[in-house]
Design a protein around this nucleic acid. Structure first.
Lengths: 250, 250
DNA sequence: CGCGGTGTTGACAGGCTTCAAGCTGTGTGG
DNA sequence: CCACACAGCTTGAAGCCTGTCAACACCGCG
C-alpha cells in the first residue's frame, strides 16, 4: 500500500492527460511502457521559480505536464532576452543533455508540474525505440523552426508587428494544448516579459500594446492579456500562423 | 572503368577530407559504411545559387562538403532575415525532412559541394544506427543553441556589439573547419548580407563596420572582411565565443 | 501605513532608417 | 577604345522609431 501511495503522487504515463489531446500522436503500448519507465518522477514548482540555470549542469530532462514558463539568456550587464515559451508537451533540458552545460535558463510563469527523465537513459531510448529517437529530433527541429520565426520577428518586424506576432503565437500555442480557452486570460505575464521577448524597452512595449488595444485586438489585464481577435493580430504581424500538425510527446 | 570514373566524380565517404579534421568525432567502420550507402550523390553549385527554397518540398538532406552559404527567411514585402550560415560539416534540409515543407531558403555564397541524402532513409538510420540518430539530434540541438545566441544578439545587443559578435562567430566557425586561415579573407560576403543578419539597414551596417575598422579589429575588403583581432571583437561583443567541442559529422 | 511590483504617460535624446548622391571597379556592347 | 550599366561601398542630411528619464496611479501585502 505504501508503494501505491507513492505512485499516486505522480501522474501515470498511461493516464497522462496530455495524451487525450488529439494534437499529440498516438503511442504504441510498448512505447508507452518504455517512457513510463524512463520517467523518474515529477517536479512541482511555484510561479516565478527558476527551473534551470544558465551555466549549470543538470542531469535531467523534463517534459511540461501543466503550467507554463520561458527560456531566457542574460548578457553580462543584465540585459535579458527571452528565447521561447514552454507549455504542456514541450521538452526542456535537451540542450543541456547534449551540450553538457545549460546555455539558457528556464523560469516558471505559473505553477508547473514537469515529468523528470534521466539524461543517462537517453542513449537507451535511441537504441530500444528508434521512433522515439526520431521524435526527439522532431522536437529539436521544431524548436529550431520556431526560433527561426522569432529571429525574423526581432530582426525585421516593427514593434507593432512583433507584438502582434508574439501574442498570436502565444495564443495559438496555448489553445492548442488547452492552456487557454478562446482567450489568453489565464496566462499570467508582465509587460517586462513581453519587452524582453520582443527586444524592446518596457516603455515602448507598453505604448505598443496600447496601440493593439486601441485596435480592439487585445485587452491588457492585470498581468496578462485577453486576445480578442487572433486573425487581426496575424494580419498586423503579416504572419500565417503556426501549422496545425500532429506532434510527438515524450 | 566507367564505374570507376563515375565514382571518381564524387568524394568517397571513406576518403572524406572533413574526417581528417580532428574537430569531428571518429566513425566506426560500420557507421562509415552505412553513411556511405546513405549518400546518394553530390550537388555542385555556383556562388549565389539557391539550394533550397522556402515553401518547397525537397526530398533530400544535405551535408556541406566545401564552400559556404546561409539560411534565410523572407517577409511578404521582401524584408529578409538571415538566420544562420552553413559551412563544411553542417547539415541542411533536416527541418524540411521533418516538417515536410521547407520553412526557409538556403543560398550559396561561394561555389559549394554538398553530399546528398534521401529523406526516406532517415528512419532506417535511426533503426540501424541509434548513435547516428543521436548525432542528428545533437546537430539539431546545436543549431538551436546557435539560434538562441543570435536571438540574444539581435534582440539585446547594440549595433556595434552585434556586428562584432557576428564577425567573431563567422571567423571562429570558419577557422574551425579550415575554411579560412587566420583571416576571413577568402569568405565572400556583402554588407547587405551582414545587414540582413544583424537586423540593421545597410547604411547603418556600413557605418558600424567602419567603426570596427577604426578600432583596428577588422579590415573591410571588396566583398568580405579580414579579421585582425578576434579577441577584440569578442570583447566588444561581450561574448565568450563558441565552445570548442568535438562534433559529429554525418 | 509604507513599500515594492506593475502599468501608464509625457518629454527629450539618440540610435537607426530612409533618402539621396557620388565613388569605385567590373563587365558588356558599340 | 570608350560609353554605359550595374553592383557594391561610402557619406551626409533629415526625420522617425525607440530608448531613457521621470513622475504618477494602482494594487496587494507586511
Amino acid at each position: 500500500m505504501k508503494n501505491h501511495k507513492a505512485r499516486a503522487e505522480r501522474t501515470d504515463c498511461e493516464k497522462c492527460p496530455l495524451r487525450e489531446i488529439k494534437k499529440f500522436r498516438d503511442f504504441g503500448p510498448d512505447e508507452l511502457e518504455f517512457v513510463s519507465n524512463f520517467k523518474k518522477g515529477e517536479l512541482h514548482t511555484d510561479p516565478g521559480a527558476t527551473i534551470l540555470v544558465e551555466g549549470s549542469n543538470n542531469p535531467h530532462i523534463y517534459t511540461v505536464l501543466t503550467g507554463w514558463g520561458f527560456r531566457s539568456k542574460l548578457l553580462e550587464d543584465g540585459r535579458r532576452q527571452i528565447l521561447n515559451y514552454i507549455m504542456p508537451g514541450d521538452m526542456i533540458g535537451l540542450q543541456g543533455s547534449i551540450m553538457g552545460e545549460m546555455e539558457h535558463s528556464v523560469e516558471a510563469l505559473s505553477a508547473m508540474t514537469l515529468c523528470v527523465f534521466e539524461r543517462e537513459y537517453m542513449m537507451k531510448l535511441y537504441e530500444k525505440h528508434p521512433d522515439l529517437g526520431y521524435d526527439i529530433t522532431w522536437i529539436a527541429a521544431t524548436e529550431e523552426r520556431i526560433l527561426d520565426e522569432h529571429l525574423v520577428s526581432v530582426g525585421r518586424r516593427t514593434a507593432l508587428e512583433r507584438a502582434a506576432y508574439l501574442l498570436a503565437y502565444l495564443h495559438q500555442k496555448a489553445t492548442a494544448v488547452g492552456l487557454a480557452q478562446e482567450e489568453c486570460s489565464d496566462l499570467s505575464i508582465t509587460q517586462q516579459h513581453i519587452a524582453d521577448t520582443l527586444g524592446l524597452s518596457i516603455v515602448h512595449t507598453n505604448k505598443t500594446l496600447r496601440k493593439l488595444a486601441q485596435k480592439d485586438l487585445i485587452i491588457w489585464k492585470e498581468r496578462g492579456c485577453e486576445v480578442l481577435n487572433v486573425k487581426g493580430l496575424l494580419q498586423v504581424a503579416g504572419w500565417e500562423g503556426m501549422p496545425e500538425k500532429c506532434r510527438p510527446l515524450i
